[in-house]
Amino acid sequence: MSVPKYWRNIPQRYRLEAVKCIKCGKLFFPPRPVCNECRSQEFETVHLSDEGKIVTFTVLNSAPSKFSYQTPYPIAVIELSDSAKICAQITDCDIDKLYIGMPVKLQMRKLSTEGDAGIINYGYKAVPA
């Protein structure tokens, strides 16, 4: 992850900053310029809820090199209580006890690092609620 790219996404990664279409109310995370429901370009900034439930999940045994030391790790699509959906790892959990519908809460975690000397990539992960 290049530094400018990391920096641009800080509001999303650290505090779940999203946008809501003023016209039709649809939520977008990350923010985008045009609503895909009503094509409106007017949005307000909102912060997503940090609570939700698992919609679907898997446990990875094989990972890209940056994540390989973390295997096995679960990853899931999570529907937050404000109906936005995100993709995140599940951490601090018993990987044999995950289930669809399981309540989770988002926390900031260290997702990966750019080698030994590069930046640390922080972001959200879900933990069992």
């Binding site: 996404n9 679907t56 898997t58 094989s62 990972a63 993709c87 790892q89 997702l111 972001g123």
Partner: peptide, 26 residues
Amino acid sequence: ADQDYEGYHGITFPALCAMMARSHMN
């Protein structure tokens, strides 16, 4: 895949398809 919101979290193609499989099975 979406590099900023999937790849950043350690997702792979098998993982995405596995999640679709789980939904389909469910």
